[in-house]
């Protein structure tokens, strides 16, 4: 059953159209990723889902309740971790947690099972003020506070932005554990490589959804052959490569190049030969499976 449904939502701020008719559903127990760059509309969408902002048109439901008309009910069912750290900096770890439990009419003891895997790392610091915690610790406390009333749906706005790679991995491991406990999670990120950690993703750009699918589904739907090219001075070679008639698109991908082929006949041999003829010194050409970033670029250009 779907826990979140978003139907044709639009929202403008003055002349800026932040969301342009966005629709998608999130099923119960899903870990759903909203993937897109800064300014794509992710935060606006999350604020609408969490009843903090009204859409100009369209509607959204959480667990069947309308986010506009039944916002009081929706708020009891949601846990929300905003992008900016929003706990009380001058309250201690323990005081913050008790406060959020109290607001929702429950106690930390009652739902301790749900947060114990997250909270046990914080427990040694429970008397410390939240403002004095490290980035990784703040993030764990914010997650604990969002969970303390045992919500059915957890909404996380860019929880891993600015967090180091080790803490990021720990955080995603925690999300997987929460998912196992049946909580539905919607999480946003600007980092394409986090897409593969979600069950399903929506790619979002300029207030529009570019596609909704499983990460594998998005990758399998990439409509072209893709090749990885290693060559001397790739950035210089790009100008040559882009002008070739067999090339649909080409761009840097780490230390190599990604070459989007505009026909099915192209093979590594054909591409290597054509490149050599155009004066590019090629080390290797291999057909590769696209990554989410390749798919995002392709869908942006389709628009």
């Amino acid at each position: 059953m779907e826990k979140i449904s978003v139907n044709s939502i639009s929202k403008s701020y003055g002349n800026v159209e932040a969301l342009k008719g966005v629709s998608f559903n999130v099923d119960g127990g899903e870990l759903f990723g909203l993937i897109g760059p800064d300014g794509a509309g992710k935060t606006t969408l999350m604020r609408i889902i969490t009843t903090l902002l009204l859409p100009d048109s369209g509607n959204a439901k959480v667990c069947g309740y309308d986010v506009a008309n039944e916002y009081k009910k929706v708020r009891t069912l949601l846990g929300y971790m905003p992008g900016r750290f929003s706990l009380y900096q001058d309250l201690s770890v323990e005081e913050n947690l008790n406060f959020f439990a109290g607001v929702f009419g429950t106690t930390v003891q009652e739902n301790y099972d749900l947060i114990k895997n997250i909270y046990y790392k914080l427990e040694p610091f429970k008397k410390r003020r939240a403002g004095k915690l490290s980035g990784g610790m703040k993030q764990k406390l914010a997650l604990s506070c969002a969970l303390v009333h045992k919500p059915e749906v957890l909404v996380l706005d860019e929880p891993t932005t600015g967090v180091d790679a080790v803490s990021r991995k720990e955080f995603w491991d925690l999300l997987k554990e929460l998912k196992m406990q049946g909580i539905t999670i919607i999480v946003s990120t600007a980092y394409m490589d986090e897409a593969s950690l979600c069950d399903r993703i929506a790619l979002i750009q300029n207030g529009k959804i570019l596609g909704v699918n499983t990460p594998t589904g998005i990758i399998n739907a990439f409509p072209y052959k893709l090749f990885s090219i290693e060559c001397e001075k790739p950035t210089h070679a790009l100008e040559n490569i882009r002008s070739l008639s067999i090339c649909k698109n080409a761009y840097l991908f780490g230390n190599s190049l990604h070459f989007v082929s505009n026909n099915e006949e192209n093979s590594p041999e054909i591409i290597a030969k054509t490149l050599e003829e155009s004066g590019v010194k090629v080390d290797s050409v291999n057909e590769v499976s696209p990554e989410i970033e390749d798919c995002f670029i392709e869908r942006m250009q389709r628009q």
Partner: peptide
């Protein structure tokens, strides 16, 4: 960080140049 993938590729080209 945070920019769309096309802008990002352009930016890495600039860095590499």
């Amino acid at each position: 960080g945070g920019v769309d993938p096309i802008a990002r590729k352009h930016f890495w080209e600039l860095i590499s140049k």
